[in-house]
Write a protein that binds this DNA or RNA. Structure first.
Lengths: 208, 208
DNA sequence: TTCTTCATGTAATTAGTTACATGATTGA
DNA sequence: TCAATCATGTAACTAATTACATGAAGAA
C-alpha cells in the first residue's frame, strides 16, 4: 500500500492547475511560469513528481499517451481532487515570506564598501524594472482581451495587482536608498543617519 | 580532510553576524530573529550547523566554554572570514523571492467560494498589521536611541524601510482587493472584471 | 522544591534543486 | 540533413525543516 507522501502547498498548486483543464507534465511547467511561479516558485522537476503523489492519493488520474514512439502522461483531476481543493481553500494560508539577498548583503556591508551597497541597490532596481516590463506587457495583452484563460481575468487581477505594486515598491525603495547611501562616507561602518530620516520612516509605519 | 559542504547564502549570513561580535549558537538564533530573519528566514536548527561549516573552511574559530557543567560553543570570525565576507559582498545578490500562499489560494478560488477569498484577504491584512506593529515599535525604540548596536543604525535603516513599506503595501492591497471581491457573485468562477480596473492596474505599472 | 522558561544541542526526514539524458519537430 | 529548440522525463544530491532531548536558572 506504499505510503504516498503528504500533500504540500506545492501539491495543491499543481492540483489547482489541472482543475482548470488536464495538462501533460510539460505543459504544467509552462503553466506554472505563467500562473503561480512568481508567488510560489518551484523548480521544473518538482512538477514531474507532484502529480504522481496526487494520483497516489486519488486526487488525479494519469493517462498515458504517445507522441510518435515517445510516451507522455496527461493528468486530470478527479471528483475527490476537486473536493480536496475546496477544503484546502478553506484553511487560512500563510502570510508572505520574503527572501531578499540583496538586502542581506547591505545588512552586512560594513564589511565592504559603500560601492558594494550601491551596486546591490542598482541590481535590485534593475530586477524590478525587468520584472515590471514582463508583468506590464502581460497585463496589457490581458486588458486587450488577448490573454489565455480570459474567463479567469477577475481572479488573476488580484494577484497581478499585488505584483505590479510590489515591483514599483522595490524600485522606489532602491531609489530612496541610493540617495541615502550616496551621502555615506566611503566606509559604511562610519555612516550616520541624517536627522529626520528615522522619524520619517517610522511615520510611514503609522497606518495600523 | 573531510570535505566541508559548500558555503551558501545562509553561511554568509551567519558569518555576517559573528563579524559584529562573537556569539554562542543560541545567541545567534536570537540575533537572526532581530537582524535578518524577515529577509532571509531560516530555522533555528540551521544556525547550529552553519558555524561548523565556517570553522571547517577556516572562516571562524570555535571556543568551547562551560556554563555549570553544560558546554557551549562560541564562534568568532577569523581574518580569512572577514576577507571571505568582503568578497561575497562584491558579487551581486539575487532579487527578492516571494512566497505568498494566500494569493496562491485566491488564484485557485474558482474551486471554492467568494468567502474563501475574503478570508484569505482578511488573513493577509491581519498579518500585515501584526508585522507592522512589531516593526514600528522596534523602529521607534531605535529612533529614541534605545536599540542594540546603535552604530549600525544607518545601515539597518535601509532594510527596515523596505519592510515598513512592504507591510503597508500588503495591507493596502488587501483593502483594495477586498472591495473588488465583495462585488463578486457568490461563485468566484462567475466573477467579471469591472470596466476600467484592468486599465487602472496597468497604469500603475507605467513607471519603468 | 517544583514548575517554567531559557539555553543548547542532535537526529530523522523531506522538500526541493541541479545535473543529466534523450526523443520529436521544425526550419534553414 | 543538420542544428536548434521543444518536449519529457530520471537520478543524485543537499539545504532545510520538524521533532526530540535535556541541563541551567529563576520564580512561585
Amino acid at each position: 500500500m506504499s505510503r504516498p507522501g503528504r500533500l504540500t502547498t506545492t501539491s495543491y498548486a499543481v492540483l489547482g492547475l489541472i482543475a482548470i483543464k488536464p495538462f501533460s507534465t510539460y505543459e504544467l511547467t509552462a503553466q506554472m511560469d505563467r500562473s503561480f511561479y512568481r508567488i510560489w516558485p518551484r523548480s521544473r522537476s518538482k512538477l514531474y513528481e507532484e502529480p504522481k503523489k496526487l494520483v497516489a492519493h486519488g486526487l488525479a488520474v494519469a493517462t498515458r499517451e504517445r507522441v510518435g514512439k515517445r510516451p507522455r502522461t496527461v493528468y486530470s483531476i478527479t471528483a475527490a481532487g476537486r473536493a480536496a481543493l475546496a477544503e484546502w481553500l478553506q484553511v487560512p494560508g500563510s502570510g508572505p515570506a520574503l527572501e531578499f539577498e540583496q538586502i542581506l548583503k547591505i545588512t552586512f556591508v560594513e564589511n565592504g564598501t559603500k560601492d558594494n551597497a550601491l551596486a546591490q541597490l542598482a541590481a535590485a532596481r534593475a530586477w524590478a524594472v525587468e520584472q515590471n516590463e514582463v508583468n506590464r506587457d502581460v497585463g496589457r495583452a490581458y486588458a486587450r482581451g488577448e490573454g489565455l484563460f480570459q474567463e479567469r481575468a477577475a481572479i488573476n487581477m488580484i494577484g497581478g495587482a499585488f505584483l505590479t505594486d510590489f515591483y514599483a515598491l522595490v524600485a522606489r525603495w532602491a531609489d530612496w536608498a541610493t540617495e541615502l547611501v550616496q551621502d555615506w562616507p566611503d566606509s559604511p561602518s562610519d555612516a550616520v543617519l541624517p536627522p529626520g530620516v528615522a522619524d520619517e520612516v517610522v511615520k510611514r509605519a503609522d497606518w495600523s
